[in-house]
Design a binder for these strands. Structure first.
Length: 159
DNA sequence: GCCAACGTTGGC
DNA sequence: GCCAACGTTGGC
């Protein structure tokens, strides 16, 4: 068994729905990343994301749009319980406990950036021009980032 | 609120 | 399998 290298990710959330502050307020600053209903993102949550991986927490939709904090994955992919609950918004009648369709990971807030690194800045930064986030048509709410991209954003937050 | 870019659904 | 219609994401 070869040990897989830690990987880095970016996850989007609308702050009006679930913000970085909301995550910090959770017990142990930890929450399920639920409600992902896109198969590409699902595959990442189920198959690729591992305990110890780093996550950039991104606020979408509401200004200021950008990366606000850093998290750590503390539990790898398991079935999203909201898909089984008919009272929930994320209920999926096509899913069953035997054959779950959607997955979550648990993330723990690690460090709020000293300031938000905005989408506008990310777009302007030459070192970040290959980020999936700024590729045309790219809307994945869970996406891989390189170590260099991750570290660059943290550096920018300190400037 | 608008709309571009995708993703999903369902008839055929 | 094709593709039109519809739904969603997410920046502006």
């Amino acid at each position: 068994m070869t040990r897989q290298k830690r990987r880095d990710w970016l996850m989007k959330s609308e702050p009006s729905v679930f913000s970085y502050d909301d995550l910090v307020k959770e017990p142990d600053s930890t929450a399920m990343w639920d409600g992902v209903r896109n198969y590409q993102a699902r595959n990442l949550l189920r198959d690729e994301i591992r305990v110890g991986d780093r996550v950039l927490f991104y606020h979408s939709n509401d200004a200021p749009i950008g990366v606000v904090g850093v998290c750590r994955v503390v539990r790898a992919g398991y079935p999203d319980p909201t898909q089984f609950d008919s009272t929930q918004k994320y209920y999926d009648p096509r899913s069953s406990k035997e054959k779950p369709r959607w997955y979550v990971v648990d993330v723990k807030a690690q460090k709020r950036l000293s300031r938000i690194v905005t989408l506008a800045e990310i777009k302007e930064d030459e070192e970040l021009s290959d980020m999936k986030l700024v590729q045309k048509g790219q809307r994945l709410s869970v996406q891989p980032v390189t170590e260099a991209e991750f570290d660059r954003i943290v550096v920018m937050s300190k400037q």
